[in-house]
Amino acid sequence: MIITFFPFVGSVLQASLYIMKYPYAELLYGSNSAEIEMKLCFVKKDDTEKILHAANVCSDQIPELMKKLFSNKWHKFSKADIPPVKYIECVLRHSSVDLAAFVRFLAGCNGNIDALYNKRSREGKRYYTYMREVTKSYHSLCMFARTEVFDNLIISEINPPHSISDLFCKWLGRRNPDLPVAVIQNDIAYIANGEYLGYKHFDVLPASEIESLRSSKRDEKLENLWDMYYCTQMIDNRRNPGLAKKMQPAYTSGISRMAAKDRYRVERGISNTTLFDFTSI
């Protein structure tokens, strides 16, 4: 038997329920039906082999599936961690996740929701780490990604390690409800508040389409203003490079140019002398 599924929460939960019923079935996933069909051509031994498809469900039905998989405690989560449905969504967004193994892990929890969080098993710890890495990556974007502000548009170019660009775009959209926001990753642009530009509220477009919408840039000197502000917040005799580096790790400098400059100052401190001081002697 082959169980096919999509990398979405509803479909993964459905697949986990099927695998509990048919533990020896093979798992196969694809981002769309065409991909699954193509993969099936390679995997299917003969036409008599039974295929179960775990279709994606709408968000209203997810609680019901969670209840079937984890009994009544499905919504249980600690203060420190995100809810189980979000946990699963984060793991699915991780770049290294083996989806079939994750489906088997969910089924192997045997209805114990704590197995997702308590890190007692090696698999549990791995997926917990994945969840933390994805949330950390998302938070890093929210912290250190900077935008280019145009008269009619806010644009941010990012390249995160996991598939979280859409989440970041929605977050930027909520922050700036009065302007359309575009988040560009390689050749794809995610748009939030798209109704201002004649698109859907949240939309995905080719990046080239956004390039044409860029108008004249405003506030060119803003970065210099930020640099000035940043330097005023330093208390000289409290410099603590160890703590500063821990708070702003080296990888964050790759997120935006402004973050790279701030990170450089975390590493090297802020110089008190300038070229102007030298020439004015």
Partner: peptide, 30 residues
């Protein structure tokens, strides 16, 4: 701006949401 922002560098404030930068002293700037 430089004088006035510098006057608040000793003030601590935190809304425990998102920090956008960290100074060389390790304190967050949000």
């Amino acid at each position: 701006m430089k004088y006035l922002s510098s006057g608040t560098k000793y003030d601590s404030c935190n809304q425990s949401a998102i920090c956008h930068a960290f100074g060389p002293d390790g304190r967050c700037i949000q």
